[in-house]
Design a protein around this nucleic acid. Structure first.
Lengths: 206, 206
DNA sequence: TAGATTGTTAATCGATTAACAATC
DNA sequence: TAGATTGTTAATCGATTAACAATC
């Protein structure tokens, strides 16, 4: 009996579920239902129940899901029951904004160090962080055991920096450069490119 | 004979195709194939051919796709053969970075105006833009005929500001606030939430 | 011509939904 | 108990892939 892996498309919905129920928790709510959650997210109730049931029986017939309990479960599933240290590479406009961003709190991530290739910037501070020298990046990341990186460098250097991150032991990269990157198997990659999101919407406009 | 709408999942891949071939064009390339494009993007060649064939016959047997021609076609399909004016609302860290971002050039978008609700910020400049008073936002956007918005306000005001944008005639919103929004039918919505992308990767980490 | 690559069809694969017994 | 909602199954729906004739 071989356990089938959970489809990635299901994994992709779990963080949305988590974000919504964390919000409900902040609103003081105790329980929710697949129907309510579905309405908030524009996803069918059946889909939510099916997704969650892949990981266990988290609800109660008649009453729904206990919010605090479901948050705990989802955090475990997503491996964010403990925070991940994160490195930010590139301190231009986007990189600096990401370093200062308050939105990682309670979501499983903690920016720990910041690098830039520009010698002019090295030593400057962004918030509480001193920008570190790119020359020492690989060793510094490896020594700190950091596995998660956010990449906000110019397009032209994105692949080269990515290679260094992989060399440093990074296992997950969130890439803000609007360019396709190549990574070895076992290294995970996600893209944020606002133009792509916008283009996806203009298709439907007149 | 009713023309079936093109699936949204296909539309979502077109901007990726476009980004890749625009890059090839910058590299001085003249033609490409579904195979090459697929390798760059991690998508099967068959899928790319199928997607493109929904809109016409853009390739030539034996030789592949002319890059300049395909760029032109994709830009037409995605409705970005002319640029869209864009409004940015919220001038915190993310909003300011988006306003300064150079990555919209040649991708179909042009930031035209910037608003913030904080009276302290109104009148300040971000790059070439003067931050405008939120009080006049609805009329100003409507008068300018702007249809595309990027939203980078605090979570607590995101829905309220969204309602104003809809009132102002905005038809596409790219939301940076980590919160689910509700919009009427016919208004398009996309989300950028870095924590969600990161959580999607940590699932696979130890 | 020989080689390459498209556009398209049919087959496969996977994801979503509807429905309902179980049960809180 | 009556009402509500889960977890799960089977049916439906949709997306991807394999394969190949057409043709540059």
């Amino acid at each position: 009996m071989t356990n089938k892996p959970i489809p990635d498309i299901v994994i992709g919905r779990l963080p949305q579920y988590l974000r919504s129920i964390q919000r409900m928790a902040r609103e003081g709510r105790q329980v929710t239902s697949s129907q309510e959650l579905g309405e908030r997210l524009g996803i069918s109730a059946a889909q939510i129940r099916k997704d969650l049931s892949q990981f266990g029986e988290f609800g109660k017939q008649g009453t729904g899901y206990n919010i605090a309990f479901l948050i705990e479960k989802l955090r475990k599933i997503l491996n964010i029951d403990h925070d991940w240290d994160v490195v930010v590479v590139g301190c231009g406009g986007i990189g600096s904004a990401v370093v200062r961003y308050r939105g990682f709190t309670n979501r499983g991530f903690n920016v720990r160090m910041v690098f830039d290739a520009d010698p002019q910037k090295v030593g400057e501070k962004i918030g509480e962080f001193v920008i570190q020298d790119y020359t020492n990046m690989v060793d510094t990341i490896r020594d700190a055991g950091i596995k998660v990186a956010m990449l906000a460098v110019p397009d032209a250097s994105a692949q080269e920096v990515t290679n260094k991150l992989v060399e440093a032991g990074i296992r997950a990269i969130l890439n803000y450069a609007p360019i396709s990157l190549t990574v070895p198997a076992g290294v995970h990659l996600q893209y944020i490119d606002p133009s792509i999101h916008l283009q996806r919407m203009t298709y439907y406009l007149d």
